[in-house]
């Protein structure tokens, strides 16, 4: 996480702009990708990612250029996503450990077409879409954990600190998420193994 710089930086608007643009260039795609995996819609992902960068802009003078911003940005996106869920669904997000409900019956019924050549499309758009659909069938708090762990590759401790939850909760949510995804993604998963 980027630490806050103690002394004031000499203010140069041109400098700030260039530095900010470099940050957007460097982290934009990954931040957007993570927001997309969590939110599941391009519009929400764009909104979340931009909001995160707006916060970067506001704190630009206090961010040390030499410290990677990644953790800070991911934490911000995570918090923004939690806010978004709260705004949209009221207190539902609070019940973190309710059992994995079938949020989408459609997904449970979905069966990959047996005639489709799965191997050929494993890394393609179809798999991506199916994986995203499977992710969206998870409860948001479970989804956040699996996105941070398996898509972004963060350790349990880091995820716990980003989301403000105990490591044990990270562990149980991640296991639940993988079990649910394993069932839904079996055909693509096997295809990947074969490739």
């Amino acid at each position: 996480m980027a630490r806050i710089q103690e002394q004031e930086r000499p203010a140069d608007p041109q400098d700030d702009r260039a530095r900010f643009e470099a940050l957007v260039e460097r982290y934009g795609r990954r931040v957007y990708a993570m927001a997309y995996r969590m939110a599941g819609s391009e519009a929400d992902a764009k909104d979340l990612a931009q909001e995160a960068f707006i916060r970067v802009w506001r704190s630009l003078s206090r961010l040390r250029p030499d410290v990677p911003l990644e953790g800070w940005l991911y934490r911000t996106v995570t918090n923004l996503f939690i806010d978004l869920l709260r705004r949209r669904r009221g207190p539902r997000i609070q019940s973190l450990d309710e059992p994995l409900a079938t949020t989408s019956g459609e997904l449970a019924r979905e069966r990959p077409d047996a005639s489709a050549d799965v191997e050929r499309t494993v890394l393609g758009a179809i798999v991506d879409r199916r994986v995203q659909q499977a992710l969206m069938s998870l409860l948001p708090d479970v989804r956040m954990v699996v996105v941070l762990a398996d898509v972004e590759g963060y350790a349990y401790e880091e995820i716990a600190s980003m989301m403000g939850i105990p490591v044990g909760t990270v562990k149980s949510r991640l296991h639940r998420a993988r079990l649910a995804l394993r069932g839904r993604l079996a055909p693509f998963r096997d295809g990947l193994e074969g490739s």
């Binding site: 997309y36 391009e42 890394l123 398996d150």
Partner: peptide
Amino acid sequence: ATRRLLGSLEAPDLPQGFA
């Protein structure tokens, strides 16, 4: 295998006009 599949996802491109 599930973990590997998730890890193999490509990051989508930034939407046009993001910046």
